[in-house]
Amino acid sequence: MSEELLRIEKVGKRFGKITALQEVNLTFNKAEVVGLVGDNGAGKSTLIKIISGYHTADSGSLYWEGKKVRFRLPKHARNMGIETVYQEQALAPDLTIARNVFMGREPSNALGIMQEKLMEEESMKVLRGLGLRIKSPDQLVKKLSGGQRQGVAIARALYFDAKMVILDEPTIALSVKEVREVLEFVNQLKQKGIAVIFITHNLHHIFSVADRLVVLANGEVMTDVRTENSSVEDMSDIIVKSTLGALV
């Protein structure tokens, strides 16, 4: 079947007395879109922070392309090809699109002078590859719509040869049209063979693009199914019951 990219084995994480994750086992494959859903406090963000190197796991192991890895810093994960796109943290609104795409990694000559032409051409190229229509790479990011901003953040991940892109609530606070744009970006990533972890509260958004759905509750994987074997109703039932189960 599909090729394994990242495998998580018995990963656990505690914060003081609170168990955020307990013995989580998951596999992410190349060019596969996985929807990660669950209520607040279910462990979603702890899980992606471990994958992207912001936290280290207390127990268990990560295997990247079959080899055991340990990410102690975000840099380590990024060097492997894991890019995380956060909604609010991602972009500098006062900078142009091109300068955002290359922020912190500006191509430059020996003196450090930026190669602006290259930056503009390359950012246009990746944006077009995502199906995003932008007038000019010179536009300030603050003048873009929410959907376009997500596109710019995703383009950045794409340009730097990501093998896996983690999208943290990419459709939150977006209009219907913008949500459609973002879902199209996800399809484009999949077409390019990139694995996507799509974190969301909204089951309807994820159903149209995800190959697999993973529900987390109380730091445990409640279910891990292929999208075609499930429905929005089944999934919301699982989320509600697993959350309630914890309360009873």
Binding site: Q89, L91, G104, R105
Partner: peptide, 15 residues
């Protein structure tokens, strides 16, 4: 500019 515009983004991008 990145630091002045969005310090968190700059940091997250390795600045």
């Amino acid at each position: 500019y990145a630091v002045g515009s969005n310090q968190d983004a700059a940091r997250a991008m390795g600045v």
